[in-house]
Amino acid sequence: EITKEQQALMKLIVDAYNKHQIPHDFAKKLLQEQYGAEENFLLLTEVATSQVQVLVEFTKSIPGFLSLDHEDQIALLKGSAVEATYLRSAQVLSKKMPTGHVQLLEERIRKSGISEEFITPMFSFYKSIGELHMVQEEQALLTAVTVLTPDRPYVKDQQAVERLQETMLDVLRKLCALQHPQEPQYFARLLGRLTELRTLNHYHAEMLTSWRTN
């Protein structure tokens, strides 16, 4: 059973998640104009920057986050930005979109100079997120759980972060049970995606190095 307080928390987080989206202009550019590899690279870096800003705005709305030590706030965001961005992209790509949009976005990523060894795990992750058919509440809470990971580098007060993360996990666990009564493993599957995200984070660092060199 989800308590009234948990329901209020969930609403707050979903509202914040929906409110903070990448600017419409970017989305439009991504879908409308044809670019070569170099322009795709530049566009994707701009979008990535915008996604980090969106992530920060969302995170500021998570109750308790701004009460954490300021440097810990930065450490958490720095440690989770890549994972949260992949998560958001996966959710965008698994949304229902007009015909051809998903293919166009995929093409843009594939033709931006990223080598195939990184593209494969990236798209495999996008696919595995799509298969979960998460509701908005689950997406928003999973993103909050990702940001509030206590063992990121340079986090000093891990216990304070853990308490916040536990609050989110508790709501998410209850929500999964309510949303997917036929699938008792659903919550565990969501947490499994977080492990997959950590692997992607590792790939991402290597990918950036090779991308810059190219």
Partner: peptide, 21 residues
């Protein structure tokens, strides 16, 4: 350009609220 700004700078600026910088 934004692509030359480090991740930490982007985060610090966004946390302080001056996105337009």
């Amino acid at each position: 350009p934004a692509s030359n700004l480090g991740l930490e700078d982007i985060i610090r600026k966004a946390l302080m609220g001056n996105l337009e910088d």
